Amino acid sequence: ELKKVVALYDYMPMNANDLQLRKGDEYFILEESNLPWWRARDKNGQEGYIPSNYVTEAE
Rank of each mutant, 00 (worst) to 15 (best):
I50C: 06
D18V: 09
E47R: 03
E47N: 06
D18L: 08
R39K: 09
A16P: 07
G24I: 01
E47T: 09
L19E: 00
K3F: 10
E47W: 06
R22W: 07
D42P: 00
E1W: 07
E32I: 04
I50W: 00
M14K: 13
E57P: 11
Y54K: 05
Y54T: 03
A16W: 06
G48I: 00
P13A: 07
S52L: 05
V5P: 01
Y27D: 01
L21G: 00
G45I: 01
E31Q: 15
A7V: 01
A40C: 06
D18M: 10
L21A: 02
A40R: 01
Y27Q: 00
N53Q: 10
A7Q: 01
A40E: 00
W37K: 14
L8V: 09
K43Q: 13
E31H: 09
A40V: 09
N17D: 12
R41A: 06
E57M: 11
G48S: 00
N34S: 15
S33T: 13
R22N: 12
N17H: 14
E57K: 10
K43L: 11
Q46E: 13
E59A: 11
V55G: 01
P36A: 14
S33L: 09
R22G: 03
S52R: 12
E47S: 09
V55D: 00
G24K: 03
Q20N: 05
G45M: 06
I50T: 01
Y9L: 15
Q20R: 12
L8F: 04
L30P: 02
M14Y: 05
G45D: 09
D42W: 01
L35K: 10
S52M: 14
E47P: 02
Y11H: 05
N15F: 04
W37A: 11
K43Y: 09
K23Q: 08
I50K: 00
N53D: 10
I29W: 00
L21P: 01
N44L: 11
G45W: 04
A58G: 12
T56R: 14
P51L: 09
E31N: 09
S33I: 08
I29Y: 00
R39S: 07
V5H: 03
A58W: 06
V6L: 09
G45R: 05
E57I: 05
W38P: 10
K23T: 06
L2F: 14
N15H: 09
K43S: 12
T56N: 07
E26T: 14
Y49C: 11
K43E: 13
M12H: 13
N44S: 09
P51Q: 06
Y49W: 11
E26I: 12
R41K: 10
L30Q: 05
N44T: 14
L19V: 03
W37Y: 11
Y9V: 14
M14G: 14
Y9T: 15
S52V: 11
N34A: 14
K3C: 04
W38S: 15
M12I: 15
Y27T: 01
L21T: 02
E57D: 08
N34P: 14
E47K: 06
A58D: 07
W38R: 07
D25G: 08
V5A: 05
N15Q: 12
R41W: 04
L8T: 11
P51D: 04
F28S: 11
G24Y: 04
L8G: 03
W38V: 14
Q46K: 15
R41M: 13
S33A: 14
E57S: 12
F28Y: 08
R22P: 01
A16M: 05
V5W: 05
K4L: 07
N53I: 03
L2C: 04
W38F: 10
E26R: 08
M14Q: 15
